[in-house]
Structure formats: structure tokens, C-alpha cells
Design a binder for these strands. Structure first.
Length: 279
DNA sequence: TGCCAGGCAGACA
DNA sequence: TGTCTGCATGGC
């Protein structure tokens, strides 16, 4: 099916989303001066592109999967309400980040894929994470779909290390896959949890600490008040908010942007990383 | 060639 | 409770 939506660059910019570090299986292809975007999540696939009509986007996917993709892109949520609060603030770094990252959205991705993606992400870089995930899909699924818990649970960790270059994280992947495959851990249960309870529950899993838990809660469960603090965020707090202590910073951010902390973090992360790395 | 990356677990003080 | 270290490995 083809779904047509009117979305301004401030509401939706896949060029920003694609490099935001929250998604590892979205890509852009350019063919005869025409840009198309492709995204895969779990076993679902979509293609989308901007038409000649102003702000008009076409999304092409299976008819019964549009609901998933509409939720994936969070299209029922108005991000301008968040932007107005940021623009009215006196936070110059955050305002610059918003100005630079227009059209960012927080994606709600396939839950199982999110778990494995962020297990792989620890002490790793985005390029390598993408490579490992692509290898998992190629070696243990049809190349487009993400391998199921049942498939991954049967693998020796040594195979995963060799075939998908996930390093020491292979043990974490197999361990979690076994728990999910056997029914010992139901990842969908967490949807009924509060953010705080989900945060605690996820850290009971081997290989998941505070940062990975927050990423899964944000990009899988869409808890918008998750605020993952990684090496880049530590840099931001130290360098760009040096006029306050870490405790003061966390207090400020929790007070000022309650309800969309994850979006704020994503803007900061993307801006800082692009500014320094010039990726 | 060495440092770094969307960190975590385990040991130790 | 806080700090330190080892962990795989490819990109830069």
C-alpha cells in the first residue's frame, strides 16, 4: 500500500533520524537524483520518499503493517509542542541542538531487535553496531528480517563472535535469547510497568546496565522520560553545561523537560556528535 | 599505532 | 558505595 502524508521539515527529516544513532537499519539510496529511504524493523520493511508536492511524503509498505510504521515514526505525536518549550528556554546549547536537528523523531522500534541492538552497542561504535546487526540478519535470517530469539538461543556464543563480530557481547545475546525463547522472560510484560520498575527489571538481565536499559526503554518501549547517558552525554555535561554540577544539571533537565527527556537527549547527542566528528 | 566507541561485570578497598 | 580493570574489535 501507499500512504501519503504532509510533513514539514521541522516535523520529519529522515536525513537527521538516519544518523541519530537510535536506528541501525535505516538507509538512504540515491537513484537518478531521486532520494529514497528504506527501513527494516523486526520482520517489517518500508520505503519512503518525498514527492514533488511540497512537504508531501509517500510511504510504501504492506497494508497491515502501516499501523506499526505509523507508531514507529511516532506520527501521532506533535513534536512542535516540545520544540516550543525548548525555544522558549534560555538553554543556548539545547536551542542550537534543536536548530541543527530539525525533524528529529524518537522511533518506537521492534522490541526484540532493540534489545539485541543495544546489547551490541555497549563500548562499541555506530558503524560497527550496524555491521554486526546486518551480519546477524544475513547469517541467521533472510537478510531483511531480524533473527528470532529461538534462532539466536540455539547458537554457541563463539559462532556469534565469529560470524557477527559482536565480541564479548555474544554471551549476553545468547543468554537473553535463551531466557526469551524459553518463556522465562517476556519482553512484552514491561509495557505494563512504570518507567522506574522497567529500569530496575531490565538491569537484572546480564549485559544490561543503566545506559543500555535507558536506550531499550526509550527506543523500544517509548518511555519518553528515559535519558541515556553515554560517553557523548558525559562530554556534553562536562563541556557544554560546565557552569553547573552534574547533580544540578540532572535536576534542571528533569524539571524543565519532563515528559520528553528522551527527545531532548537525542537532540543533544546528535548535535554534539556531528559537531565534533563531522560525520 | 594507539585511541576510541550510545558500557558492563566483577574484584577490591 | 565508589573506583578500577578487563573485555573484542574495527574505524579513524
Amino acid at each position: 500500500m501507499r500512504q501519503e502524508l504532509l510533513l514539514s521539515p521541522k516535523d520529519f527529516n529522515p536525513n537527521v533520524i538516519i544518523d541519530s544513532g537510535q536506528v541501525f537499519r535505516m538507509k538512504k539510496i540515491t537513484c537518478e537524483n531521486e532520494e529514497r529511504f528504506i527501513a527494516d524493523s523486526g520482520n517489517k520493511h518500508i520505503e519512503f520518499y518525498q514527492t514533488n508536492k511540497a512537504n508531501c511524503w509517500n510511504f510504501i509498505c504492506e497494508a497491515d503493517e502501516w499501523e506499526f510504521w505509523k507508531t514507529y515514526f511516532d506520527f501521532d505525536n506533535d513534536y512542535q509542542q516540545y520544540n516550543r518549550i525548548i525555544e522558549a528556554s534560555s538553554d543556548e546549547f539545547l536551542k542550537a541542538a534543536l536548530d541543527y536537528s530539525g525533524g528529529m523523531r524518537i522511533l518506537k522500534q521492534d522490541l526484540w531487535e532493540t534489545y539485541i541492538s543495544y546489547l551490541i552497542s555497549q563500548n562499541n561504535n555506530i558503524k560497527r553496531i550496524q555491521n554486526s546487526i546486518n551480519k546477524l540478519c544475513e547469517k541467521y535470517a533472510d537478510g531483511q528480517s531480524f533473527p528470532t530469539p529461538d534462532i539466536l538461543a540455539m547458537l554457541p556464543a563463539s559462532d556469534l563472535m565469529k560470524e557477527a563480530s559482536v565480541g564479548y557481547r555474544a554471551e549476553y545475546i545468547v543468554d537473553l535469547s535463551k531466557k526469551v525463547s524459553s518463556g522465562e522472560f517476556d519482553i512484552y510484560d514491561i509495557f505494563s510497568y512504570s518507567y522506574e520498575d522497567g529500569f530496575k527489571k531490565l538491569q537484572q538481565i546480564n549485559g544490561i546496565g543503566p545506559k543500555v536499559a535507558n536506550c531499550i526503554l526509550l527506543y523500544g518501549y517509548h518511555f519518553m522520560d528515559s535519558y541515556p547517558i553515554d560517553t557523548w552525554m558525559k562530554k556534553i555535561i562536562k563541556e557544554d553545561y560546565a557552569y553547573m554540577t552534574k547533580e544540578q544539571y540532572l535536576s534542571y533537565i528533569n524539571g524543565a523537560y519532563k515528559g520528553f527527556l528522551g527527545y531532548v537527549q537525542q537532540l543533544q547527542f546528535f548535535y554534539k556528535r556531528r559537531k565534533i566528528s563531522r560525520i
